[in-house]
Write a protein that binds this DNA or RNA. Sequence first.
DNA 1: ATGGCAGTACTATACTGA
Length: 264
Amino acid sequence: MKIATWNVNSVRTRINHVCNWLQANPDVDVLCLQETKVVDSDFPHEPFINLGYHTYIYGQKSYNGVAMISRSPLFDIQLGFASVLGEISDPSLDDQKRLITAKLGNTQIVNMYVPNGSEVDSEKFAYKLRWLKLLREYLQALLAKNPDVLICGDFNVAIADLDIYDPKGRESKVMATDIERETLAAVLELGFKDIFRKFESGGEFFSWWDYRSGGFSRNRGWRIDYHFLTDTLYEKATACAIDIEPRKLTQPSDHTPVIVTIES
DNA sequence: ATGGCAGTACTATACTGA
């Protein structure tokens, strides 16, 4: 089983890149997309259906939006926090469409686009931390039903200094502050491990490079796209790869796909 | 220290991202 995650920064603008990538990677079972940036009624289902995939979407106008593109049908699709938790005390956390989960066989796959947070101490930053706190409750509820959970997506947090090309001054930078790391760590403490680090302990591995200032050509990137797996899945994983090829194309997304391989 | 690049909505420029 291969699961991939890719923040495509508009699925409509990137449709050819995504379809070409699927055709070049036919053994990927599920591709989790973030930042689709399209309302559901305008989602480009056809190109995926024509390639033989099933599509599961949760979008909104202009911003955010997630989707799952799957070789075989997925089951028990749930959109947003409330679909799992029931009524939530802060409904604004479901205003932005960032969270979709579904089952592939016995594996619960959660695809998420964590809020960026804009600037430290901004209202958006507070929203990000509240979102991550509710994510913990959400995952706890999923784990109560099924121990085999894979969460992936754009987490907008570099979990270690090794995941940033230059961590100097990171304390005051969004995506790298202690409070973001601690809040995400509290989520992962439920039993999730970074599968990339099962296979690679070194630095200079990134999944996002700023469009500006030649970030990619100078490899000035961040690793903010992850797959976190619970124990049984973690043990069965045999590889985790970052595919930088799509980032080299013209008009690329600023993120590139990350793929985990799990023995079935 | 700042700005740089890109997509969307809209139709000039603001907002957002990371």
